[in-house]
Simulated scan of single mutants.
Amino acid sequence: MLLSLAVILIPILLIVWAFTRTPDEPEVDRVDWKPAVAEARSGAGYPVLAPVEIPADWKPVKARYAERGGRWVGQTQAAGNRLELGFVSGDDVYIAVNQSDEPDKAAYIASVTRSSATDGSAMVGDQTWQRRVSEDGRTRSLVRAVGGSTAIVVGDAGYTALESFARTLKAS
């Protein structure tokens, strides 16, 4: 009887273990973000914001630039000259800077900030940024106009972290 019970229980325990264990964190590849910034600065037609350097424990995970009408994500076309740089901080928080001169600024802001609502303003250095928060309160953003474009710092982080990142951005 014990042998029959073992024949039934061992596969059941293996199945339970396989479906209830927590998998390891997937490894996200680093990308070289500086070529996308250089391309944007040579073709965008507006002052491009980008960090001068990033902290050593940050990982650049997304860097893309598309000119107006060029291929953006999937089969979509960029409505303007558009740059996106994404980083994972040392605390495993994703923070990105997005910038575009798309004519429909409201649609651009809504798409990047998860249809957020205004949540006040913040002074970062000598620049005023509009604070925004998504409906579920998870995603916060900082938005401001930069020489004919709209710049957005966005992440699932508090405003303090976003403002700290925004201080590292330089236009050129």
Rank of each mutant, 00 (worst) to 15 (best):
E25S: 09
E39F: 01
T160W: 06
A36Y: 05
K59Q: 13
V112D: 05
A151M: 06
A40M: 13
F165W: 10
L13T: 08
D32E: 09
G155M: 12
D156T: 01
A40I: 05
I10A: 09
V133S: 03
Y159G: 06
A50T: 07
V7Q: 02
Y159K: 08
T20D: 01
V146G: 05
A166M: 04
V97L: 04
Q130R: 11
T20F: 03
D92T: 03
Y46N: 02
S111D: 15
Q99T: 09
R71T: 12
R114Q: 08
I8V: 15
Q130F: 04
G155C: 12
E39Y: 01
T160A: 14
V61T: 14
S141W: 06
W129I: 10
L13V: 10
R30S: 11
S100E: 09
L14S: 15
A110R: 13
V93K: 14
D32G: 04
V7N: 02
M123W: 07
P55A: 10
R138F: 13
A171G: 03
P103R: 12
R21A: 10
V73Y: 03
R138Q: 12
Q127L: 12
F165M: 02
V88E: 15
A110Y: 03
Q75C: 01
A6G: 07
Y46P: 01
P103E: 06
R30V: 13
G90N: 11
D92I: 08
R138C: 04
K105M: 00
I109F: 05
P60I: 07
A157P: 09
I152V: 14
L2T: 08
A117N: 12
G70E: 13
V73E: 10
E102I: 05
E84R: 00
A171L: 11
T128P: 01
V124W: 07
T160S: 11
A106D: 07
L2H: 05
F19K: 14
D29C: 01
D136Y: 06
V124S: 11
A50W: 05
A145E: 15
K170F: 04
G158N: 12
W17I: 13
L142P: 01
R68D: 14
L5P: 00
R132I: 10
G148F: 12
A107G: 14
P47I: 09
G86W: 07
D119C: 06
V153E: 01
R21S: 11
A145T: 13
A145M: 12
L83N: 05
P23I: 15
V37Y: 08
V153K: 04
I54P: 00
A107W: 09
A38N: 09
V133N: 03
G69W: 12
S111E: 14
A171V: 07
A157T: 00
K59W: 06
V112W: 01
V153H: 05
V48H: 00
I109H: 04
G147D: 10
Q130M: 13
K59V: 09
A166E: 05
D119W: 09
E84Q: 13
A79R: 00
L5G: 07
D92E: 15
D156P: 00
I152G: 03
A157K: 08
R21Q: 10
V146D: 11
Q127P: 00
R82P: 00
Y159P: 08
